[in-house]
Each structure stands twice: as structure tokens, then as C-alpha cells.
Amino acid sequence: MYKLNGNVALITGVSHENGIGAAICKKLASEGADIFFTHYGSNADWVKTFEDNTREYGVRCGNLEVDLADPGAPFNVLEAVTAEMGLPAILVNNAAHSTRDGYMNLDAQTLDDHYAVNMRATFLLSVEFARRFRKSPMPVGRIINLTSGQALGPMPGELAYAATKGAISAFTLSLSAELAPLGITVNAVNPGPTDTGWMNEEIKREILPKFPLARVGIPEDAARLVAFLASEEAEWITGQVLNSEGGFLRG
């Protein structure tokens, strides 16, 4: 199906086995893409094992530990992947910062911490990717951002997270118009509530009735959609936020 042979994919925020980032790496690798992933604070043994396992798909794989809150990180990441594998054709902005706040706790530092990773790193990675792509002979590029359904309902206690993730949706739409003439599509994926290891059994029991499809979301759900958006079959889709939530019912 959606073969990605010969394309280099850069995926941020791949820090543990059960995450959406790891699932995206595996799915893109299974379709032939070379993988370069970023991580931060992960166990070194896990990173090495994950890299080796990804290579078993018959693709190249590299990684970089980087704090995306560093203003220079986006440039450094693209320098690293280009030096090791060549210019990426696919960028998946999956990394995110999230802490609880609420109106009684929200302060400048909390806002800045969320802004640095969720907005600044995503925005600067995207535009630097496009600038380099513009100078390359590659015919097609893909930018895929991860959002969190913040436009579909309130997220009490997560004001900074919801606001900065909401900015990604707005950025996706405007950037898509600028980059379309370059052959780059820009889309966002909202995977809805996904069991990446943070859900205990009580949480699962509470939210399961809100899924008409009778199961909680898993990382592979998001990975399949990202792989489609990265493929040639999705060349006519740009500027969209795809809410792939299994019909999740809010309220």
C-alpha cells in the first residue's frame, strides 16, 4: 500500500516503547522509510534496542537526544539527520510538553515551558524543514503535526497545554497555504485519548463507554493515519486537522 521507500522520516518525541512516537516509527519503517527519531530523558538501553529493532525492517535508523526547549534545537536536529541520512522528506512533530495547571496555578514559567516545546520547536522545525526542502530536488514533502482535540471540547486543568496545542492547529492551516507551491503538504492528527501507558484500569473503565467503537485508542491507530498522510495517496490533503478518535463522545 502506502510505500515510503527511499524517504527519510524525522519523528520527534520518541521516548518510550508504548508511545505514539514509537508506533509511528515502526509503521513508517514497515513501509520502507528510513527513520531518524529524537528523544529526551529516555533509558539509553531502550534507545539502542529500539534503534536496532527498527533496522530489522530493512531501513536505516538514527537518533538524537535533544531538549526541544532549547531555541537552537530545531536547527541542530535537522543538521544531524541531514548529515547522517540526507534531507528528510517527512517531518512528524510528535514531541509535547504537558503538566497540569488550572487557573489557580497557571504562571509565566508554566506557559513558557509549554510554549518552548509545543509551539516554538514545532514551528521552527517546520519552517527549517521547508527552507531546506525548497533547495532540494525532492518533489514531495510531508509535515504532520500531532494535536490533542483541544478545539472539540474544554480541557480543564490543562490551560497551557490546550492553548499551545491549539496554536498548532492554526499554524498548520496557514503554513499549508505557504508551502503548497513547494509540493509540501501540512496536516495535523488528533488521535484522541490514547493508551500510551498513562491510563490505569480505573481511567479505562471510566472512558470506555465514551468510545462507540468499544475500545480505547491505541498508538497504532495514530500511526496508521500518519503513514497515510505521509504517502503519495494523501497528496491532495493539506491544511487539515484530522480528528481520528474512534467517535469519542465528549460531555
Rank of each mutant, 00 (worst) to 15 (best):
R215K: 09
T49Q: 14
D101M: 03
T122G: 07
S148E: 11
G6C: 05
L91E: 04
L213Q: 15
G157Q: 09
G6D: 07
A230H: 04
P88V: 00
G58I: 05
A167P: 00
I144H: 01
A89M: 12
A121P: 04
P181K: 09
A22E: 10
E31C: 06
L125F: 04
K26V: 01
R250W: 12
Y57D: 12
K210D: 14
A96W: 01
G41V: 02
F123P: 03
R142C: 05
A83C: 01
G32N: 08
N187M: 04
A80N: 08
L28I: 04
G41W: 01
K27R: 15
E178C: 02
N93H: 00
F228E: 05
L173D: 09
Q109P: 04
R55N: 07
F37K: 13
A234C: 04
L225N: 06
A33S: 15
S42C: 02
V140L: 13
T54K: 05
D34C: 05
G197M: 00
L242D: 07
A180I: 01
G86M: 07
R131G: 15
N105Y: 08
F37N: 14
A151Y: 13
T12H: 10
V216S: 13
G62L: 06
E178Y: 03
L213I: 13
L124T: 04
R224I: 01
P191Y: 05
A96L: 05
N5D: 15
M155L: 14
A116G: 08
P191K: 09
G246P: 04
N105V: 11
L249K: 15
L91D: 00
I11K: 10
A23D: 09
T172R: 03
L4H: 09
T164F: 03
A121C: 11
I168L: 05
Y40F: 11
Q109H: 12
R55L: 03
A223R: 03
L68M: 07
I168Q: 01
T196A: 14
S98A: 12
S15A: 13
A108H: 04
N53D: 15
L229G: 04
A230Y: 07
A80T: 03
T82N: 05
S126F: 06
H16D: 07
R100P: 03
S30W: 08
Y115K: 01
L213T: 08
D45E: 13
G86V: 04
G217H: 02
L242P: 08
G149E: 05
A222E: 11
L229V: 00
N18S: 11
L213A: 08
D52W: 02
R100I: 08
S30T: 02
M138D: 11
E84W: 00
C25Y: 07
L68E: 11
V8H: 08
S136Y: 06
I24Q: 12
T12D: 14
T185N: 11
R215D: 03
Y40S: 09
P71V: 12
G166K: 07
R131A: 13
N187V: 00
N53K: 15
L182D: 14
A230D: 12
M85H: 13
E65G: 08
T110K: 09
T185K: 03
A33P: 15
L64F: 06
G32D: 10
N187C: 06
N105F: 10
D107T: 01
T82G: 00
T122W: 01
L124M: 15
F129G: 13
